[in-house]
Simulated assay, not measured.
Amino acid sequence: MSIQNVVKSGLESAAVTVVDEICLAGEPWVKVVKKGQIFRIIDLEGNQAVDTLFYNAKDASERYSATDTIRRQNKLYLTTGSKLYSNLGNVMLTIIADTCGRHDTVGGACAAESNMVRYGLKKFPMHSCRDSFLHALAHDPVCQQLNMSKRDIPSNINFFMNVPVSEEGGLDFADGVSASGKHVEMRAEMDVLVLISNCPQLNNPCNAYNPTPIRLLVWDYSEL
Rank of each mutant, 00 (worst) to 15 (best):
M148F: 13
M148P: 13
M148T: 14
S149I: 03
S149C: 13
S149K: 08
K150A: 12
K150C: 10
R151S: 14
R151H: 14
R151E: 11
R151K: 14
D152G: 07
D152Y: 10
D152E: 13
I153H: 06
I153R: 07
I153L: 12
P154D: 09
P154T: 07
S155A: 15
S155R: 11
S155F: 04
S155Y: 05
N156C: 13
N156A: 07
N156S: 10
N156G: 01
N158I: 01
F159D: 02
F159K: 00
F159C: 01
F160K: 02
F160E: 04
F160N: 03
M161W: 00
M161L: 05
M161Q: 08
N162E: 06
N162P: 06
V163N: 05
P164V: 02
V165A: 02
S166E: 04
E167S: 15
E167G: 11
E167A: 15
E167W: 15
E168T: 10
E168D: 15
E168W: 14
E168C: 09
E168F: 12
G169Y: 12
G170H: 08
G170V: 04
G170E: 13
G170Q: 10
L171M: 12
D172F: 13
D172V: 10
D172M: 09
D172N: 13
F173W: 11
F173V: 13
F173C: 05
A174K: 06
A174S: 12
D175F: 15
G176I: 02
G176W: 02
G176C: 06
S178W: 00
S178D: 02
S178H: 02
A179H: 15
A179E: 11
A179T: 14
S180W: 02
S180L: 05
G181W: 02
G181H: 05
G181N: 11
G181L: 06
K182D: 09
H183R: 14
V184W: 03
V184C: 05
V184D: 03
E185R: 00
E185G: 00
E185V: 00
M186V: 01
M186Y: 11
R187L: 10
R187Y: 01
R187N: 05
A188F: 06
A188R: 07
A188K: 08
A188H: 07
E189A: 12
M190I: 15
M190W: 11
M190E: 11
D191R: 06
D191K: 04
D191N: 09
D191I: 06
V192P: 05
V192F: 08
V192I: 13
V192N: 10
L193C: 10
L193Y: 08
V194Q: 05
V194F: 07
L195K: 09
L195W: 09
L195C: 15
L195S: 15
I196T: 15
S197P: 06
S197G: 08
S197L: 03
N198V: 12
N198I: 09
N198T: 13
C199N: 04
C199T: 03
C199P: 05
P200R: 12
P200W: 11
P200D: 10
P200G: 12
Q201F: 01
L202I: 02
L202T: 07
N203F: 02
N203M: 10
N203R: 08
N204K: 00
N204P: 04
